[in-house]
Nucleic acid binder design. Structure first.
Lengths: 254, 254
DNA sequence: TCTTATCGGCTTGTCCGACAAAGCTAGATT
DNA sequence: AATCTAGCTTTGTCGGACAAGCCGATAAGA
């Protein structure tokens, strides 16, 4: 091998990948803003000088990555990747890696506590109103495990939102997506479970209102510990989040 | 609207999406194990009864999602989604949402502290050996900001790995990918920055070895506070993680 | 005049057929 | 037996084609 290589590595990326990369670059560094049109497939064919099939494969890649989408008339436009979609992908990865509920619990504890701390510090009136609205609706369905579980998940999403930290919001999503569906099983299986959940939410919201961080953290921890105790009554924490369980989550999505 | 709807919702998903969903389902619920072959495009064409172009679009979707890949001979096989790849997607999303360094810092502080706690509790001898190896290599390049920054990032990855919590490992990746690249700028800009970084890593590893959680947390916090002080010397925490900065990260990737 | 219906044109989703390059297979050769 | 070579398979790409849906413009009707 010569000391100084004569030739640079030849780029052998397939054409569809190059198409995707080229469009991605334009979006990432802001030359195409979210919401702006990308152009028709025909235009892309002309610009890149490749076949339409090739362009379409490149488009699929970006579409799946959430960087572009098709508007009502199926035309291409750049867009902001939605957390939710990406989080679903991550949840899927966690399933396949067969993580345990213990891992989920530990991480969620960390992230939910961080959430409540942020919320206590920085929640706006609007955030508090949203949380209060959620609480009211929860009180109505306290006897209905499925409904309550859904509102519980929403409560925690709103709490993360109230923290005004979007990185935190994103970081907690994947674990939450796997963690919270169990709430239904737990609330349904433990008498007084619904009432305890509601009480915890009340105290958390109260702490946020009073800007009392210690109380917020305390009740968030209690809330999650309740989940854990409930969960251990019906399954082992060291069981992996299973395929069958995920199927359920998938079915709900569609 | 009649009480019982006469018609079920019509499924209008495009064919390529259905192909992707069908394969995805087989993988998610374990009928196709990671590493197992999916079949050739021709076989999929025959099974699904659609055109090869359509199959290929479906394949691109799954490939991008990390659920399938092509082996050395370009044949399709199921695989475990790699964290790293997904984290890159997330980092990209964070950029486009224009999150600030303050958000990154706050979240990283939470997650790195959780990491070190887990590591102190559960690090194996092998984990500790890896961290020690990283430390040795770091000592060698202490005067080289780029090299040291890279090893710093690795140190934190190893720490998360030592926590034995894969959910945590995944949750910290996106923030870390955006957070740590700045280390180079900071270490380069602050005299004694490299030495301080190394000292912190030493104390953290020592704490992990001694199973001393308080010390581990203390030095991790100090380590990140050092980053923060260094960062504030060169930029504002409230600036968004910018496109130009991302371009740098992208260039390095390829 | 204002609304409605119709008509082309354009775009997407899908299909068909084709071909070069690269990998794999198996028979032929040393 | 090890190696080589020719053929088959598969992928990546290409060109062309067509039905269905959307859009704008134009024509018809109130």
């Amino acid at each position: 091998m010569p000391a100084t290589p004569l030739f640079r590595r030849i780029d052998v990326a397939p054409a569809y990948q190059k198409v995707a990369d080229a469009i991605e670059r334009e979006i990432i560094n802001g030359r195409i803003r979210p919401g702006e049109p990308i152009g028709t497939e025909q235009q892309l064919v002309a610009q890149f000088g490749v076949n339409r099939s090739t362009v379409r494969e490149g488009i699929r890649v970006l579409e799946e990555g959430g960087l572009i989408r098709r508007d009502s008339s199926r035309r291409l436009q750049a867009c902001l990747p939605r957390y939710n979609k990406l989080a679903t992908r991550l949840s899927r990865a966690l399933i396949l890696h067969e993580v345990t509920f213990r891992e989920l619990f530990e991480t969620s504890m960390t992230l939910e506590v961080a959430s409540v701390e942020g919320a206590v510090e920085r929640a706006t009136e609007a955030n508090i109103a949203e949380l209060a609205g959620n609480l009211e609706r929860s009180a109505v369905v306290v006897g209905n495990p499925a409904g309550l579980a859904e509102l519980d998940a929403e409560f925690h999403v709103l709490m993360a939102k109230a923290s005004q930290n979007r990185v935190l919001q994103l970081a907690r999503e994947p674990a939450a997506q796997l963690f919270f569906p169990t709430t239904e099983m737990i609330v349904g299986g433990v008498p007084e479970g619904g009432a305890r959940l509601l009480e915890a939410h009340r105290h958390i919201l109260d702490a946020i209102k009073r800007r009392d961080k210690a109380a917020g953290v305390l009740w968030t921890r209690r809330h999650l510990q309740d989940w854990r105790r409930g969960f251990e009554k019906i399954a082992s924490l060291d069981r992996s989040v299973e395929h069958t369980y995920m199927e359920h989550a998938y079915a709900a999505r569609e």
